[in-house]
Design a protein around this nucleic acid. Structure first.
Lengths: 235, 235
DNA sequence: CGCAAGATTGATAAAGATCAAGCCGGGTGG
DNA sequence: CCACCCGGCTTGATCTTTATCAATCTTGCG
């Protein structure tokens, strides 16, 4: 009966029963949010740290001309920034993609955690560093990789991240993204995203029917995307 | 006699004499590093938090095919991640661009600071959030903005960031980047970077001779780059 | 059944990469 | 003192990738 956060933290730290209990108690306040809902709007003042227990969410920015850029995904076990309440206004929005189970932790909960479970907070800080590393890796991909490699890279990243919280099999997972979302993530048009998906499909690397992605040759897909998981700092 | 870090922290927090003194003492250990030197290599285990007191530095990643992506710049007053020692190996490198004055703070210095000057540490955590916001803004730019706008945006960002630490005038600053660096930052080729610079020059928005950038019409350049400074969370 | 959202396809245009050559200024060795 | 050499900048020509526009298809669902 472990939730995604516990699973994620345990991938880098052996939790005590006490710590596990504290995290379970936190998770009791989870609320259900439908798909495609903003958890926080851009410009809003954040009052809670949001933790995703289940489902797919993302951070995104809207730009002039109605363009949208998804900057990263929040998967089960991921949360918004621990220190988020320090800043005045959100410079981006956070929204669900699929239906999600979300815990909104008020500042007091974070302070409690800091006081009583510093090891947990330290592990959370580590998570934040990894998130930053993911952003840098995305920048590197957008700057230097062709669209097909970027796409392959993204699919590999999601595979590995979902695996660490038990939401992916050895070579498959549920992917609730539309092609428009993929485009908005990779910085390419919907049409091009479609064609890059086809390319990977035609080459027998993946298949994607409905919302289930199957990777037929994980090693080959990783090579195509130049995916090296070091930046995720697993273990 | 304030250094860049003090200036930067003071832009969001009134420092006490005590805090200022502690920071000055830290800065006594500054060492000088020539241009184009790695401060930390990719794959290396970080043992110190590096603080840039003077000069231009950057984080970068090397990709297959010898491509390089600069993910962000470290300007005077900027530092690597407070919690960096938590992770095992660097997933990117940090290097100087111009000659720099750098303080290498060991873990013990950070712990000291946390124990005796929590307000300062809190302000540093805020800086880290802003750095993350800068990464997201760069992703948004790379995904959705044309090269000329991206370039304009970058020049505006550097103007504002340098101003807060006193290294830029109202509309000019020293920019020690080569065109190759600009290209590696924006994810475009050197040739294209050159042409985008020319475009901004020809339109009378900027001039760049030697290493000094002058922005002839700051408001116009900001509009060109769709630059809205909110994400820097100033004040 | 009919519709709407999402996926697919084809044709054309634009942004940017790549290749190749020339330029310019400053430092250096003869 | 001058020639030359090298790193960085500039320019032109051509090729590739990706965007855009527009239409069509598919599918789940009321």
């Amino acid at each position: 009966m472990k939730n995604a956060l516990i699973r994620k933290l345990q991938s880098v730290l052996e939790l005590t029963d006490d710590e596990r209990t504290a995290l379970m108690v936190l998770s009791l306040n989870a609320r259900h949010v439908g798909s495609r809902q903003d958890l926080i709007h851009e410009g809003e003042r954040p009052r809670t740290v949001d933790l995703i227990l289940e489902g797919f969410a993302c951070r995104y920015k809207l730009l002039s001309g109605g363009k949208r850029q998804i900057t990263d995904f929040l998967l089960p076990g991921d949360m918004t920034d621990l220190d988020i309440c320090i800043i005045g206004k959100m410079d981006h929005a956070v929204a669900t993609i699929s239906p999600c189970s979300v815990v909104e932790m008020p500042l007091s909960a974070i302070e409690d955690l800091t006081a009583h479970h510093p090891r947990v907070v330290k592990a959370m800080r580590r998570m934040a560093l990894v998130e930053k590393a993911i952003l840098r890796e995305r920048i590197a991909g957008m700057g230097q990789r062709s669209a097909d490699r970027q796409l392959a890279h993204l699919l590999c990243e999601l595979l590995v991240r979902l695996q660490t919280v038990g939401y992916a099999g050895k070579n498959d997972y549920r992917l609730p993204l539309r092609q428009q979302d993929l485009g908005d993530t990779l910085g390419i048009s919907l049409v091009h995203a479609n064609r890059m998906l086809q390319q990977l499909r035609d080459q027998g690397l993946i298949s994607l029917d409905g919302r289930r992605l199957v990777i037929h040759d994980v090693k080959a897909l990783m090579e195509r995307g130049e995916f090296k998981p070091d930046y995720l700092h697993l273990t």
